[in-house]
Each structure stands twice: as structure tokens, then as C-alpha cells.
Amino acid sequence: MAKLSTRWLKKSPWVYHVGTGGCNNCDIEILDCLTPRFDVERFGIKLVVSPRHADVLLVSGPVTYHIKSRLQEVYKQVPKPCVVACIGACACSMGIFKDAYSVAGPVDKVIREVDPNAIFVYVPGCPPKPETMIMGLVKALQKI
């Protein structure tokens, strides 16, 4: 995995959106990024429909027990190298769902169970503004 170069990945991160039991608020803000006002296609960011085409997994919501195995499966289906972006307070640290009976854990903990070397981006906020998401993603891609 380390051998594959990430030189061009910065220029065209294709995004696949996974909802893991959030309240839909972050999802609406993610869709805002695609509107003419924010227009993420300027940075080559494109929403794709199959995890096989994706470079970035946008995960929103605390990971419920129900969706835990699905999230891990989707992560395995993404060709590496890839980045996992945790969108919103719930995905970063479970937010108000901390210690709730139905929640398996924050996104990074669930994904590290299948791949300890996964790369994460944290965009906190409830919900984060579209500008914050774009900045988080662009900053993260500059660093890898």
C-alpha cells in the first residue's frame, strides 16, 4: 500500500458518501458542497456512486451496531490508497451519542479494526459548514 504513489490523488479525489446512522444534517451540508455556490469540482472533487471508484470515503454519523459490518465491508471495497473523512461531531467522537446503547464507536475505531494504517481526516462541527469540509479535505490531501 505504501508503494502506490499519491501524487495525482491530490488533484482528483473522488468521493463516496457513506451514511452511518447520522441525523441527516451533515448529509445535507455535504450536498451543499456540490451546489454552484461552493462547486467542489474546481478542486477536481467528484461524487461517485460506487466504492470501487472512490478515493475518499465521506462518513457521517456515529457508527451504529447495525451498520458497523457494512462500513467495514465498504472500506475493504475501496481501492487503496484512500482517505476516510469523518464528517461532523458524531463521526469524529460520537458527539451526543457517546455511551449510547446502540452505538459501536467512532468511525476511526471501527475502521482501524480492519486496517490499522488507515488515513483519517476529522472535520468536527454539528453540522460542519461546507467551507470547513472543503478546507479539511484540501488540507488533508496536501499532507499525504
Binding site: 500500500m1 502506490l4 504513489s5 499519491t6 501524487r7 495525482w8 490523488l9 488533484k11 482528483s12 454552484p36 462547486d39 469540482e41 474546481r42 477536481g44 470501487r52 478515493d55 471495497q77 481501492p79 487503496k80 490508497p81
Partner: peptide, 23 residues
């Protein structure tokens, strides 16, 4: 009513795809 991608965007896309893992 958007700005749209930069000129070399399709080339970046194809180059990136060549560097990805094949499943």
C-alpha cells in the same frame, strides 16, 4: 452556473486511476 474543473482535470483523473490499486 458553476466554475467547473481546471483544464488538466481529465488528465489528472486518468493518471490517478493508473496509480490506484486494481481489485
Amino acid at each position: 452556473w458553476r466554475v467547473g474543473p481546471p483544464f488538466f482535470q481529465p488528465f489528472y483523473d486518468v493518471l490517478k486511476l493508473w496509480q490506484k490499486e486494481l481489485i
